[in-house]
Design a protein around this nucleic acid. Structure first.
Length: 304
DNA sequence: TTTTGTCAAGTCCAA
DNA sequence: TTGGACTTGACAAAA
């Protein structure tokens, strides 16, 4: 089991997603930003290793305009060594990486242009994993997409697009149950058609479900992961922010809820991403709880 | 130096 | 019809 948090480390004074406006695009600015972003990424990963946080979601903006036609700078070759260095670090410390392409990636859109731009974004993010030398256990996580008033059609469009994806993307792509549109059952339909693993989100499942108890839902999702190809199941963990709109993530982990959730896992091995606003603070507390209950090694990894 | 409006991209839903 | 929300603030013009 690995524990992680997404995209941002609030304890360090750097960002992995420094960028600039499209209107002020230049190759020089791309080169400067990518260099800074990759240096910061290594700092965060090193910080994480010291705290036994071995799962990390990298933000989509490491390469500014990474899938935009304006960006013709050869960042793949210019930063090959730096990406490789990140990948080597990840492998040396047995870490796991994911990406979560943002809401503009909609593979089931009826608009062919949107689908094409979405595929290009996935190609860009997958290529970063390729440059790092990381295999298909490191994932690209997206939602099924829009509903467009017809669930069956929306799902069948996703399936048709998925089948045409480049292999480098398809091997890494996983779908996440969302909190309003596509439930675990919808994701299972997609899985049954094309074999794509389901990244389970406990909070989204609480918001949208068909009555499956949490433990059963976890097992249904876990069964969609092929151990050799996909690795251990990934999941997102969060809980409701009190007094806020339904679906709003809590600002800080509620330890009682997290402790109550753990028995639902039974003997499942999972890597857990804490989608909680205070980032590494809650992830660190989760590690502490897991050591308490014996699900995480008590001793930190030996310094290297 | 600090504040504030805006930023590549899509979709849904509440107001 | 519009604004907010979504996995995540940060850039850059204006004050």
């Amino acid at each position: 089991m690995k524990i992680g948090y997404p995209c941002v480390n609030e304890s360090l004074d750097c960002t992995t997603t420094s960028t600039f406006r499209l209107a002020s695009y230049s190759d020089e600015r791309v080169e400067l930003a990518v260099g800074n972003n990759l240096r910061c990424l290594l700092r965060i990963l090193a910080w994480n290793v010291e705290r036994q946080l071995l799962f990390f979601r990298i933000g989509s903006g490491v390469v500014p305009f990474g899938s935009h036609p304006i960006n013709t700078f050869p960042w793949q070759t210019r930063f090959a060594a730096e990406f490789r260095q990140v990948g080597d670090f990840v492998k040396a410390h047995d870490m796991r990486i994911s990406f979560h392409p943002d809401q503009f990636v909609v593979l089931n859109s009826p608009d062919a242009g949107i689908v094409e731009r979405s595929v290009q974004e996935l190609v860009y993010q997958g290529s970063m994993l390729d440059l790092m030398g990381l295999d298909s256990t490191h994932k690209l996580q997206i939602h099924v997409g829009g509903l467009y008033g017809d669930r069956d059609l929306a799902i069948s469009r996703f399936i048709a697009t998925y089948r045409q994806l480049p292999e480098a993307v398809r091997a890494r792509l996983v779908i996440e149950n969302d909190d309003r549109l596509f439930s675990l059952q919808d994701c299972l339909r997609v899985h049954q058609a094309v074999g794509i693993p389901i990244l389970f989100d406990n909070f989204h499942h609480e918001c949208l479900n068909h009555g499956e108890p949490m433990a059963e839902a976890l097992r249904l999702a876990a069964a969609t992961w092929h151990p050799a190809r996909d690795g251990v199941m990934m999941m997102d963990y969060s809980s409701q922010a009190h007094g806020e709109r339904k679906g709003k993530h809590t600002a800080s982990m509620e330890e009682d809820l997290f402790r109550a959730f753990l028995p639902e896992l039974g003997d499942l091995d999972v890597d857990i991403m804490l989608e909680i606003k205070d980032k590494e603070a809650s992830a660190g507390r989760a590690c502490g709880i897991l050591r308490d209950v014996g699900r995480l090694a008590v001793s930190l990894p030996a310094a290297q």
